[in-house]
């Protein structure tokens, strides 16, 4: 047992060490423009150690940027769930609905956020100042919706016939069947979808901020690339990674709670 616990800690650390070593070697040999790990830390220290400081619109502590990004993601993600879950239910319940909309869903699903964003900006051009935010929200929602839609549909189709027979024998009304049987039975699938959707929403944020120039981790990354401060690109990548990992863990915990036996 003890050996196992030690492995669980040491083995991942070996992985980190190897990647950092590769990074160091690369920056010292073939990729001269790539800042070394120590240089990256030097340049990022202020942003990490004073994470909430605001020095200017595009010069803020890293957690402050993260907070902006999370707010935008939360809104877009919420939109995705609110729209995606009912669509998933309709797909799962109605074969006709599936025949009508499944092909178009399969075609829209693989479209990259980079392609959606310009369309979002065009759509909300009339909105003036908030056009970039609405465009970003549109992009996050439409890109991150699909796992929720598809998993919910699969979950609804997988509701055991036994449960539906119970509902029929008791003559539960449609609404009662939905809330007392279908939704609880589908929840585990829905939450798998929610977790995957959140992962995508977080992926999309960077693209959305880059193209709209909004303050946030992605916006900061793009600005620092243009300002030739390459250290901060790496800082942003690491931040995005850690936050994404954290969000996924969080959702896994919630998802685990809904696993009914």
């Amino acid at each position: 047992m003890k050996r196992f616990r030690l492995d669980a800690l040491i083995l991942p650390l070996i992985g980190f060490a190897l990647v950092i070593a590769a990074w160091y070697v690369s920056s010292a040999t073939w990729a001269k423009e790539l800042p070394s790990p120590s240089k990256t830390w030097e340049a990022s220290r202020d942003y990490v150690l004073k994470p909430f400081e605001k020095r200017g619109e595009m010069d803020q502590g890293i957690l402050r940027f993260t907070w902006y990004s999370l707010q935008l993601v939360a809104k877009g993600y919420f939109l995705a769930l609110v729209i995606g879950t009912p669509i998933g239910f309709l797909l799962g319940l109605s074969a006709t609905f599936t025949r009508i909309f499944d092909p178009i869903i399969q075609i829209l699903r693989p479209v990259s956020p980079l392609a959606w964003l310009p369309l979002g900006l065009v759509l909300f051009m009339g909105a003036g100042k908030s056009a970039s935010e609405l465009g970003a929200l549109f992009t996050i929602a439409i890109c991150s919706m699909w796992p929720t839609v598809l998993n919910t549909a699969v979950g609804v189709r997988a509701v055991p016939q036994d449960y539906l027979n119970v509902a029929r024998v008791l003559k539960l009304s449609r609404t009662k069947t939905l809330f007392k049987v279908l939704i609880p039975a589908t929840l585990p699938y829905m939450f798998t979808g929610f977790r995957l959707s959140l992962g995508i929403a977080w992926l999309v944020i960077v693209a959305a901020e880059m193209l709209t120039g909004r303050p946030g981790v992605g916006g900061f990354l793009w600005q620092e690339y243009n300002a030739l401060v390459y250290e901060h690109i790496i800082l942003c990548i690491l931040t995005i990674g850690f936050v994404g990992f954290g969000l996924d863990r969080l959702m896994s915990v919630i998802e685990g709670r809904f696993k009914t036996g």
Partner: peptide, 18 residues
Amino acid sequence: GPGPDRGVVFQSPSLLPW
């Protein structure tokens, strides 16, 4: 059609697990 005027006991207990 089905209805609660007939109490059905299924082969698998068919309880709602939640």
